[in-house]
Amino acid sequence: MFKKDFFHQLLRRRLTIISLVILSVILFLGISAPYLAPHDPSQVALQYRFQPPSHQFPLGTDNLGRCNLSRLMFATRVSLSTALIVICLTMIIGIAVGTCSGYRGGWVDNLFMRLCDIVMAFPSLVLTLVIIGMLGPGFLNIIIALVSVQWVWYARIIRGMVLSLKERNFILAARASGTSDLAIIARHIMPGIIPQLAVLATLDLGGVIMHISGLSFLGLGIQPPTPELGAMLNDGKQFIRNDQTLMIYPGLVILLAVVSFNLLGDSLRDVFEELRR
């Protein structure tokens, strides 16, 4: 019943449909990159530099004669999967700490929340940057840096949700009837916070994509020759005078991905709010 209502409500919105379509296209391009990409994204062919779009190279080639379309597909794959990994790790840590802190209370709560206070006292981008600065640039380090800054926000929010759920009558009843803590968390608390978490994560995915590509743009993230959207933009900037498409394509993909994640997150939130009423 709930599921049917949910999808019905969700699909009734025009903007949701648009964002879902865009996201599916982007996801499809990313997932199918190794199978459908016309060329090897890192194959240098200097004789084909700065080719305009053609049959052989649908979106033209870059300064090293590499196929733009193939590079974009692989870059999308890399950026999206990195963002997903970051969000998943953040969620796992956030849920663990948040639930523990909110459900247990006491000194555990105090300890975690003071830690959150301290991490939140840093501007998050600065802390990310500094952690990468210390660890050195690289794919793994960027994930570590982003996760170790982001989890505090999730932990905070989840703790708040758990706290408010904890005092609700159905949970008090479950506790009074002797249900174990783990069962209460799994069966009663998690279902209550997951909708809001889904909204949060969807909205955040756009931000994480931007962060990853921003850091890669600075040369701190995913390292060449692996194609990444921000890094591609960085490569393109030297050729801003001769070939603007090199920087327009990756930026456009980022914009579309971020816009559709934001749209999707917004409509998810609206739908959940409507269903709760």
């Binding site: 590509s213 933009l233 900037k237 801003i240 930026g251 914009l255 749209l263």
Partner: peptide, 22 residues
């Protein structure tokens, strides 16, 4: 408000450089 918040700043920077400066 929607588009502006979704544009990566490095991209915006280059677009602006391209249009207004070049």
């Amino acid at each position: 408000a929607f588009i502006g918040a979704s544009m990566p700043s490095f991209w915006v920077g280059f677009l602006l450089i391209y249009f207004f400066a070049l």
